[in-house]
Design a binder for these strands. Structure first.
Lengths: 118, 118
DNA sequence: ACTATCCACAACCATATGGTAGTGGATTCC
DNA sequence: GGAATCCACTACCATATGGTTGTGGATAGT
């Protein structure tokens, strides 16, 4: 694996448990134990999830006695925001044009078979 | 796997090839062949990557003759932006506080061993 | 000192993914 | 019609990940 920092960040964010942990940590630091309780997962699994967040540099872990306190790194979230915002001009100027494109594609016999079921 | 729409989106974004494809598509729709050329990957692999992007609803694929034209869905990127921006208040009010927190953690004997090597 | 609590480490399993190679169906060009 | 192009489908492989169970080391409470 290359040292794809942004990729590691997105991979860490792809799991709903880890995103819920991020939301929890956005309201303040918490111990591993405190993070385990609301999620109905084993302590070992929570530790694994935290390890992914730490590896992605989204969370900082620090020992305090027998506890490990997890803290959310604000910059990590900002990196994601920056990535998305770099396409802001694209999506803003596309919202009206896309309508036309979709109509064109439907005329061209869309080969998409599976329903997405929004 | 639950129908974790946002998770599927983040997973799709975790690969650098797919992010490069997104950047390419942000400059306009392209056929699978056109997407294959700049990436030095097999056509089959590009098709797989496109399939992930389509599954995440980031890209729309439409057949036009023997070609498949891929179009970037602007909303998909906006969803990511919205997620990150929902933490904007957290990171903005945390940037100064984090400095204090880090100092506290260092006092508390950080158990982190491995260097991250930024 | 003894025990309970907090946490990490290891082994193990099933599945998804990045990647390869081979092949075959459509469509376009000649 | 025949050949070349565009693309998808399949089988296959190695690795990463989500998850389990078991265990053991530290630290805190008594």
């Amino acid at each position: 694996m290359v040292v794809d920092s942004l990729g590691t960040t997105f991979a860490a964010l792809s799991d709903p448990t880890r995103r819920a942990m991020i939301e929890r940590l956005s309201r303040g630091p918490a111990s591993v134990h405190a993070l385990t309780e609301p999620f109905a997962l084993s302590q070992q699994m929570i530790s694994k999830h935290i390890a992914y967040l730490v590896r992605a540099r989204i969370v900082i872990k620090a020992k305090r006695g027998r506890e490990s306190i997890c803290t959310l790194r604000p910059e990590a979230i900002k990196i994601v925001s920056d990535w998305a915002i770099s396409y802001r001009q694209f999506w803003e100027e596309s919202f009206d044009k896309l309508d036309v494109v979709v109509k064109q594609m439907k005329k061209a016999e869309v080969g998409d078979d599976k329903e997405h079921g929004e």
